[in-house]
Structure formats: structure tokens, C-alpha cells
């Protein structure tokens, strides 16, 4: 089982990895991407089982990555972990096929609630 974490902040990628562990999800290989373009390319090459992506990133935003994946027939389960959680963004994420949107700051409980259906 492989999880791709896309965020332009290395600090946040580490926090997401740590929070996955604190939420009780362990035994997964974690692959990281530092911008949207790298995320898209790595998802295509590494074929992760789940993507946790920031929204606001250089090169491509998270929603652009998701739309590009779907346009290319890649149906990987995809969720957002982002500092913004407006109704408009949630609607856009949902419309593009995202499974969930976790807002920063988040807790291990928030991860458990959002991810249990996919990793539990």
C-alpha cells in the first residue's frame, strides 16, 4: 500500500506523515511530491493507492492535478489537505472527484474520520 503526499512545504509533508501514524495508519509506503507537477508525474509513475494533496502549490494546484489525472483516466483515490476550506472549494473538490477535504490545522482524529473508510 502506497500513499502519496503532495505539499510544497516539507514541514507539512512531515506533519501529514506523522499524523497518519498518530491516527493509527501504519505500514504504508509514503511517497512525497513538492509541487503539483511533481505530484502528477509521481502519481502516474508510482501508482499510489491514495493521494493526500495540498491545494495551493507551485506549478500546478491540487485541483489542477486532480482534473489532469481524471482527464488522463487515472482514478486514484484523491483527498485534499489544505488550509482553505470554503464551500466553493469543497464543491469544486467534490465535483472534480475528491473523496474528502481536510483543513489545516488538523488533528489525528480528523485524519481518522476522513481516512478510515479508505485505509481502515
Amino acid at each position: 500500500m502506497k500513499i502519496l503526499i503532495a505539499d510544497d512545504s516539507r514541514v507539512m509533508r512531515q506533519i501529514v506523515t506523522r499524523t497518519l501514524r498518530q491516527a493509527g495508519f501504519s505500514g504504508y509506503d509514503v511517497v512525497e511530491a513538492a509541487d503539483g507537477r511533481q505530484a502528477f508525474d509521481t502519481i502516474v509513475s508510482e501508482k499510489p493507492n491514495l493521494v493526500l494533496s495540498d491545494w495551493n502549490m507551485p506549478e500546478m494546484t491540487g485541483i489542477e492535478v486532480l482534473k489532469a489525472l481524471r482527464a488522463n483516466g487515472v482514478q486514484v483515490p484523491f483527498g485534499f489537505v489544505t488550509s482553505e476550506g470554503s464551500e466553493e472549494m469543497r464543491a469544486a473538490a467534490n465535483e472534480a472527484g475528491a473523496l474528502f477535504l481536510i483543513t489545516k490545522p488538523f488533528t489525528a482524529d480528523a485524519f481518522r474520520d476522513a481516512l478510515d473508510a479508505y485505509l481502515g
Binding site: 512545504s9 514541514v11 495551493n56 489544505t82 488550509s83 482553505e84 470554503s86 483543513t103 489545516k104 490545522p105
Partner: peptide, 15 residues
């Protein structure tokens, strides 16, 4: 990186 991410998180919530 850390302070930039703090600003991003707080800014996103202010937004």
C-alpha cells in the same frame, strides 16, 4: 519552510 507554512495555515483560515 515552517514560518511560511504557519502563515499559509493562518492565512487560509482568515480567508
Amino acid at each position: 519552510d515552517a514560518l511560511g507554512e504557519l502563515a499559509n495555515i493562518i492565512g487560509g483560515n482568515v480567508k
